[in-house]
Computed example of a mutant assay.
Amino acid sequence: MGSLQFEGVFAKLARASELTAILEGEFDKHTSMSSVKTESDFELDGRRWVLRASSDGELPAIFAVMTGEIVHHLASSLDHLFAALVSSSGREIRRDHYFPVYVNHADYLARVDKRSLLDGLPEHVVSKIKEVQPFTSDTPKDTVLAAVKELNNQDKHRLLVVLHAAATIADNLELGHDEPSNRTPKITGFWTPPQLVPLTPRMQKIFAVDLADPAPSFWAKPNIRRYLILANCGEAKNVPAIRTLRALIAGVTHTVEMFTN
């Protein structure tokens, strides 16, 4: 197949990458101009030192708009791919032509096979389309194509993609104590939340240090790191947005290359 047929497909993927880089830069600017408040105290009768964080700064709506544009380019690139495949097979492109993405096999059969969506396409193309379907995975909603479809549908039909700013601690952590007897508190473990915690005006627990015994003189000085997070992506919640968007771009690019190489 001629490369010109897929020029628009790769242009959309390139634009998605450009917008992701811009979004990352804009979020970095936002964090540099907003502050995070922290406070610490003890729980479990003094055997757990807890760090909490909050922020009054709201994310600009443009961040969600940009994220919607990114996932739209990804979804659109797949539909453009399908149109190019149809055209190269000598068929006329119809208004109802689209790249099928289904998490349920029954829906695929009802909406693809029964509507003859793939009729006229070469058998190897039909096989590849079926091969990349989310329903072939043990976790269909967590596949790249399903995540792109869901985020794109959310942005088009319901509301802006839900984003939050989140806080966590960086790798470097300074620990100490002010015990006059120089008795060093024994650390038994560290606690972190199962997901990145969205920053809100209310203090949220983001980190804790577990101690063998109460040690009121214990202190920690963690460095706070902030993330832009997607509230939902597949079955996952509160995932790093930039890293996830780049993974989605890579996944869609890989899918496209399966048909274009």
Rank of each mutant, 00 (worst) to 15 (best):
P222F: 04
Q5A: 11
V9N: 13
E69H: 10
R158K: 11
I129L: 08
G120S: 08
A14F: 08
N104E: 14
N182V: 01
K205G: 01
K114H: 10
S76P: 00
T253E: 13
N172A: 04
D56W: 03
V50F: 05
L4A: 12
L109E: 15
G8N: 15
E92S: 09
R91K: 12
T184P: 00
P140R: 12
A64Q: 15
L78M: 14
Q5T: 08
A241W: 00
E7T: 14
R202S: 13
R183Y: 03
L109T: 13
T200R: 07
L109V: 14
I62M: 11
D79L: 05
L81P: 02
T184C: 07
V161R: 01
E131L: 11
T168H: 07
M258V: 10
V86C: 05
I206L: 04
G120K: 07
D41R: 11
L248F: 03
E58I: 01
T20V: 06
D96N: 14
L4M: 08
L228H: 01
M1R: 15
I224H: 02
S217Q: 11
M258N: 09
S127V: 04
R95N: 08
V112Q: 11
E257A: 02
S17G: 13
S88Y: 03
S87K: 15
F10H: 14
I129P: 04
I129T: 09
V103A: 15
D138Q: 13
E174Y: 03
L74K: 12
H157Q: 10
V36A: 04
V256P: 03
Q5D: 10
A166T: 12
H73E: 13
A84K: 10
H254T: 11
V125A: 06
E123F: 00
S127H: 08
N153T: 13
H73S: 13
V209K: 06
R94N: 11
R15K: 15
T38G: 02
V50E: 06
K114M: 08
A21C: 03
D45M: 04
R15A: 08
R243A: 11
R91E: 05
T188W: 07
T143Q: 12
E26P: 01
K205F: 01
